[in-house]
């Protein structure tokens, strides 16, 4: 079998909370707690979940912007978790990130041309070809050459996101981690960016890790989808199966909660009780048992494992 582009094994990230008065009682926020998945070459893996489920932390660890507490990240078979900062810098050319907030992720004092050029400088792209490359990238993402001399504030949200994408593409990465790339955008602009991401994927054979909270967007763009809840992946499968035969009670509730733009559709809605528990003090056993309509006694005691129920369909629930 072909080695997957990315393989994540038992990844954990615990953030230490403020220590007690006497330095004792150290407690942790378990932002990501034992997450494993693979991303194949050329596919789009979607990570979906509500706020605080650890989807962004997972993306940041993959980028090596955060060091994992435990676990391994293999990039093309090579373990990158133990690499030094210098080694990482050379390999980071292979994976780039697109951020949520196009207003905050572009330096307001740099011209758009300089912003796109920066990764080229960092990764030693020949000086005489840089300008040409920048103009080409602007064109690729649907902007024009004259935009290079403008500052980010002169652009609309959608155009800024295009600049962010151009910057990510600059060094010809294999993997792009997109963390909520369209959630700050208006509906009509959102679809432009989603289409652009799809076109670029085809043109440059890109692999995406697409992190978002909007199920309809994730379903549209992804090949496979992982559903996260409180630091864990509760279900992972291809998007058709996830939509047609969701198995985990949380996935079912999440799917039924999404408002669908069709007024004739009358659905049986699964309303979950209560709020999402805090990741600093997650429930015992299965973290979902406090809100789960099917919870049994076993669920509050034993942590379920992510098991392969059918081919390529992973679920972490005691029901299966």
């Amino acid at each position: 079998m072909e080695t997957p582009l990315v393989e994540v094994k038992n990844l954990k990230k615990y953030f230490p909370k403020k220590k007690g008065l006497l330095g004792g009682n150290k407690s942790y926020v378990k932002a990501v707690d034992d997450v494993s998945f693979t991303i194949r070459k050329g596919e789009t893996l979607g990570l979906v979940g509500e706020s605080g489920c650890g989807k962004s932390t997972t993306g940041r660890m993959l980028m090596k912007l955060l060091d994992p507490t435990e676990g391994q990240i293999l990039f093309e078979g090579q373990d990158i978790t133990g690499l030094s900062d210098n080694q990482i810098r050379t390999i980071r050319k292979e994976f780039q990130m697109v951020f949520q907030d196009p207003y905050a992720s572009l330096n307001p004092r740099m011209k758009v041309g300089e912003i796109i050029e920066e990764p080229l400088i960092v990764h030693g792209y020949p000086k005489e070809k840089r300008q040409e490359r920048v103009l080409h990238l602007l064109e690729v993402v649907g902007l024009s050459a004259y935009h290079a001399d403008r500052y980010p504030h002169e652009f609309s949200g959608g155009q800024r996101q295009r600049v962010g994408i151009a910057r990510a593409l600059a060094v010809n990465p294999k993997l792009i981690i997109a963390d909520e790339p369209v959630s700050a955008l208006d509906v009509s602009i959102q679809s432009q960016i989603l289409n652009l991401l799809k076109d670029l994927q085809e043109e440059f054979e890109l692999t995406y890790l697409f992190i978002a909270h909007d199920l309809s967007v994730v379903e549209h763009i992804s090949d496979r989808v992982g559903v996260m809840y409180l630091g864990k992946i509760v279900e992972l499968t291809d998007k058709e199966t996830l939509y047609k035969e969701p198995l985990h009670p949380y996935t079912k509730a999440l799917l039924s909660a999404v408002p669908i733009p069709n007024p004739r559709l009358k659905r049986e809605r699964i309303l979950l009780k209560g709020d999402i528990p805090s990741p600093s003090n997650p429930p015992s056993g299965c973290t979902f048992h406090t809100r789960c309509p099917f919870a049994t006694e076993e669920c509050s005691k034993k942590v379920p494992k992510l098991k392969e129920i059918a081919k390529g369909h992973f679920v972490s629930c005691h029901l299966y």
């Binding site: 509500e50 199920l215 999440l254 909660a257 408002p259 809605r269 309303l271």
Partner: peptide, 11 residues
């Protein structure tokens, strides 16, 4: 709000 909470509030 998150989707599952949104569903509660709309209801």
């Amino acid at each position: 709000l998150d989707v599952t909470i949104q569903a509660q509030i709309l209801d």
